[in-house]
Simulated scan of single mutants.
Amino acid sequence: MRSWMKTTAGLMLAATLVLTGCGSKPAQEGAAGDKPAAEKPSGSKKAEGFKVGMVTDIGGVNDKSFNQSAWEGLKKVEADTGASVKYLQSKSDADFIPNLNQYIKDKYNLTWGIGFLMGDAIKTVATQNPDAKLAIIDNVVEAPNVESVTFAEHEGAYLVGVVAGLTTKTNNIGFVGGLDIPVIKRFEAGFREGVKAVNPNAKLTINYTGAFDKPDLGKAAAATIYNDGADIVFHAAGATGNGVFNEAKDRVKSGKKVWVIGVDKDQSLEFGDDVTLTSMIKRVDQAVIRVTTDLIDGKFQGGKVVTLGLKDDGVGLPETSTKNVPADVLKKVDEYKAKIISGEIKVPEK
């Protein structure tokens, strides 16, 4: 299950998590020339002629977090190996199967489904096309031609909960989620337990928006929580979370100091250090790179499930946390991280 993780720990530790921003129009296909930018392959490379397709969930490839990180991973594969990579965006779950089947029809070597919501569609397409190879992030699909990658989000979220609990000035903290699904509940549970461990008197307000692609809902949810006295909000809401940052920026401009804890990527690079306290990063890009490269090298692990947690450096805090998180707080984070890795602390998933 973790056969490749130990050998790649060094790679993950050193990995650059954020490349450049991407942009695309909804429901369009992305190809080699699309942003986020990456150097085009030059010369003869081992995977020239190899084709990899990616289908986003409804958050879209330009969500500045989850889908974007996966696409950046594929762009890195393209630059390093010469493989051809493309994506298709899904406007709704009705697009999942047609988009996946487009790559199957075009005989792509590997087809990615990004996100928990893609689970049923991946299962259906994999069953109907047993010779095709597929992979999914954030869900487990039991099929011999599908490799599944999940993350221990609750472990990383616990650590940013420690940051929030030790940093809040108002003892009032918020969490904004997207859809109420298991992967987001893991974020919520870990964050709740981290806050509680260091600041049991802190109030935690939970708000699920019901969407991953509605920044306006994220902004409204954050406004409600900040109005109630919170000074820190952690989001796990994809592109909806962009609205949380927008609300925080509006308040900072008006002289009210509030913070956002980002998700999936180091979101300070997108939204700035003035509002980003830290981020709970998920190395989706590295998971995509590893599975895709394994297939190129003839080592595809169909039927396997890989779970990345703190001990695998699959989740955690970015190095930029030192800009806004005090050194003594980061020291506490390291202490709790060690306890989670050793098993002394078992973080609940819900």
Rank of each mutant, 00 (worst) to 15 (best):
R2E: 15
R2G: 15
A9D: 13
G10M: 12
D34S: 15
A38K: 08
K46D: 12
K51W: 04
V55R: 05
T56F: 08
V61W: 10
K75H: 10
K76Y: 14
E78S: 15
T81L: 03
T81I: 05
L88N: 12
S90C: 03
D95R: 09
D95M: 08
I97T: 15
I104Q: 04
I104T: 08
Y108G: 05
W112E: 07
F116L: 09
L117D: 11
D120F: 07
V125D: 04
P130M: 08
E142K: 15
A143V: 01
E155F: 09
L159M: 11
G161Q: 06
V162H: 07
V163D: 11
G178S: 10
L179D: 09
K185N: 13
R186G: 03
F187G: 07
F191Y: 14
E193G: 00
K196Y: 03
K196M: 00
A197F: 04
P215Y: 09
D216A: 14
L217E: 13
K219T: 02
A220K: 11
A223L: 02
N246K: 13
V252D: 00
K253V: 02
G262D: 09
E270W: 07
F271R: 02
R290Y: 09
R290H: 11
V291E: 07
T293H: 06
L295P: 00
K304G: 01
G309Y: 07
G309L: 05
T322W: 00
V329F: 00
Y336V: 01
S342H: 08
V347K: 05
